[in-house]
């Protein structure tokens, strides 16, 4: 009975994620799309909980839902023109697009069915933050540092893009 309820919640959340992600793509109103993105990100956080990844679920809510999306909504709402903008999200080349998407989908389904994924029962989920922390300053020290270099140059690039034209060369 419990597993039935669990499966029902899972499929419910999956439908929510897919539906809102689809709305983000085809929606004509930027603010509505941004709110749909909130729902999609929140649903993904639920998936992390299902997988026993408590830290990731928390980080997903904090960073994506709490941080990035709030910022995005602020940006959208403070810019009057963006709010009134009618997004041109018309579809071109519907048939070839649908065909290739369908083909990739079929291939993926087939792979997921045919490959032995070596899945095992993870047992009772426990807290993961300690082991993630140890890995980040242990085995994965170098990727951790490189990620910080990546963020640094991304920050520089963003600052460069928003700098007013001409002010940099005076």
């Amino acid at each position: 009975m419990e597993s039935m309820a669990s499966a029902a919640i899972f499929y419910g959340v999956a439908a929510l994620v897919l539906g809102s992600a689809l709305y983000v793509v085809v929606g004509k109103n930027l603010v509505h799309s941004a709110f749909a993105l909130v729902a999609a990100f929140f649903g993904v956080a639920v998936f992390y909980v299902y997988l026993g990844a408590d830290f990731l679920a928390g980080a997903q809510v904090l960073i994506y839902v709490g941080g990035i999306l709030t910022l995005l909504l602020f940006g959208v709402m403070l810019t009057n023109q963006i709010y009134n903008l009618n997004l041109r999200s018309g579809a071109i080349q519907v048939v070839p697009g649908a065909l290739s998407a369908g083909l990739v989908f079929a291939l993926l389904v087939w792979i997921i069915q045919s490959v032995d994924w070596g899945a095992m029962d993870a047992g009772d989920p426990g807290p993961t933050s300690e082991s993630i922390g140890r890995l980040l300053v242990g085995d994965y020290l170098l990727p951790f540092e490189i990620a910080s270099v990546l963020l640094l140059i991304a920050l520089m690039g963003a600052a460069m893009l928003v700098r007013r034209r001409g002010s940099g060369s005076s």
């Binding site: 170098l142 990727p143 490189i146 990546l150 140059i153 690039g157 460069m160 893009l161 700098r163």
Partner: peptide
């Protein structure tokens, strides 16, 4: 020699290249 490193280093090169290509903002 690690999939995480392959992805991260490739992405660092990519992001830096995007910015360098668009350097002439005017």
């Amino acid at each position: 020699v690690n999939l995480v490193m392959i992805y991260l280093s490739l992405e660092t090169v990519s992001v830096a290249s995007y910015i360098m290509v668009g350097y002439l903002s005017s």
